[in-house]
Design a protein around this nucleic acid. Structure first.
Length: 469
RNA sequence: GCUCCCUUCGUCUAGUGGUUAGGACACUGGCCUCUCACGCCGGUAACAGGGGUUCGAAUCCCCUAGGGAGCGCCA
């Protein structure tokens, strides 16, 4: 039997990292076993589902490269099928109409709570007296005794007693089906043989198994993966920073870095930290997934992102960096080759946003000197080296890194200064800050004209500064 | 309240009766060095607590504590 997994988000928000990891695990499991991965949109809640959320989920899946083999299927397109199943259950006495008022249920709840019992429906309408003509919901007739065993691939065996379960609503008064019914029917119809989902669904599983049995179907395998918490161990939310997958793209995270980070959350393979997609597919095993929730650590994500930025082809990084340069109002075509800039900055940025920020000076004059850098490097003692450098740079015939490197060294030697005493003022003059790639590469990419202009500006700055004091 | 689940460095994790409890991120000392970064070498830091079982327990059992989920005409 070929393995078939699914990811079934409800479109009531963006694709967040928890959902993305569940999707990743499902996708990996399918790929590893040469199976199929299905995307299903659980949009039966007409109130909260939005097209914007659907688009956001699809966009997130695409960005991550979690390609689905079937779907997206929409539950709202399948209402006829759910009706068929519900009617069948009703006809066979496995479901019944209920016209209990919300008030009655509420009172029942309160009484049960007072008696320190678990609140649940008491089966008041089980007798079948409610007619089709009056407003009603349909409830599933849960087995009154016995127990349900869930043989979970990550949790192990979990047993639920049927008397803990009540007769859940499977069709609302307005005629629409509810989650526990649709999920069961869909997984059955779509041939899903392993359900990988968040562990907030573990408690629903026995109910779903009971419905499945009423339909005469064999339950699929289940794997309930733990949830992802925020940095501080509390439930992940917006205040922890990005939760939406697309937000990570905006922050300059590479999809392979996010994927690598997510796969290591709750799963590991010995001491290995870096996994290519192929390695994940080969090594991932759903039954090795941890049971405990894990906290999302942005620092480690950043480390992985830097790793992938360092390792990737500069041309690809340049392509991905370009829009982030645009965000800063820079057209990369207006200056040095962006691929060369990436090659120079590749080891210096944890995100593409960072890389754009530290690369702006290649394309436009900086606004102001970074105060601390200017204070330390652009003082009176820097005037002479800068003047020497300026005239040497103005006269150098070839504007290439090798010659430029030699030039800076020569000036230092002539003035009997350590290289740092010459290169560092030059760096601050040219880039406005104390950090940049090697001085030779930096000069080369900035270009002669801009270098001379900026050195003049630094000399003026030193002039003003020495006059003041 | 009831049911179910979880618990190794700050964080992610390795570990399946005998280990100086390993790795990674972060933090930190040093090296490299024109800056930053990269890289390299080193350091701090954990078995939630208590009982058992056993010659021996992070590993098996029980209890306690803490955390989480569910108990919707949400999914």
């Amino acid at each position: 039997m070929t393995v078939k997994t699914r990811f079934a988000p409800s479109p009531t928000g963006y694709l967040h990292v928890g959902g993305a990891r569940t999707a990743l695990f499902s996708w990996l499991h399918a790929r590893k076993h040469g199976g199929k991965f299905v995307l299903r949109i659980e949009d039966t809640d007409l109130e909260r589902s939005t097209q914007a959320s659907i688009n956001a989920i699809l966009e997130g899946m695409t960005w991550l490269g979690l390609v689905y083999d079937e779907g997206p299927f929409y539950q709202t397109h399948r209402f006829d099928r759910y009706d068929e199943v519900i009617d069948d259950l009703l006809a066979r006495g496995l479901a019944y109409r209920c016209n209990c008022t919300k008030e009655r249920i509420e009172t029942l709840r309160e009484e049960q709570m007072q008696r320190k019992e678990k609140p649940r429906y008491d089966g008041h309408c089980r007798g079948g007296a409610v007619t089709a003509g009056e407003p009603h919901v349909i409830r599933f007739r849960n087995p009154p005794d016995g127990s349900v065993m869930v043989d979970d691939l990550v949790r192990g065996r979990v047993v639920f007693s049927n008397d803990e379960l009540d007769d859940l609503i499977i069709r609302r008064t307005d005629g629409s089906p509810t989650y526990n019914l649709t999920v069961v029917v869909d997984d059955l119809d779509m041939g899903i043989n392993i359900v990988i989902r968040g562990d907030d669904h573990l408690n629903n599983t026995p109910r779903q198994i009971n419905i499945l049995m009423a339909l005469g179907a064999e339950p699929p395998h289940y794997a309930h993966v733990p949830m992802i918490l925020g940095d501080d161990g509390s439930r992940l939310s917006k205040r922890h920073g990005a939760v939406s997958v697309m937000e990570y793209r905006n922050q300059g995270i590479l999809p392979e870095a996010l994927l690598n980070y997510l796969v290591r959350l709750g799963w590991s393979h010995g001491d290995q930290e870096i996994f290519s997609l192929d390695e994940m597919v080969e090594l991932f095993d759903i039954s090795n997934v941890n049971k405990a929730a894990s906290a999302f650590n942005n620092e480690k994500l950043l480390w992985l992102n830097q790793h992938y930025i360092k390792q990737d082809d500069p041309a690809r990084i340049a392509r991905l960096l370009s829009p982030h340069m645009g965000e800063l109002g820079i057209d990369p075509a207006s200056g040095p080759d962006l691929v060369a800039v990436v090659a120079a900055q590749q080891e210096r940025a944890r995100t593409l946003v960072e890389m754009a920020a530290i690369s702006a000076f290649f394309y436009q004059d900086y606004d102001d000197f970074e105060p601390a850098a200017a204070k330390k490097n652009l003082k009176a003692a820097a005037r002479e080296p800068l003047e020497h450098l300026r005239s040497a740079l103005a006269g150098i015939p070839e504007w290439e890194p090798e010659g430029l490197h030699q030039l800076v060294k020569d000036v230092a030697m002539q003035l009997d200064l350590k290289l740092g005493k010459v290169a560092q003022p030059l760096r601050v003059a040219v880039v406005g800050r104390a950090a940049s790639p090697g001085i030779d590469v930096t000069l080369h990419l900035v270009g002669r004209e801009a270098c001379l202009r900026r050195i003049d500006r630094a000399l003026e700055y030193i002039q003003e500064r020495t006059q003041e004091s």
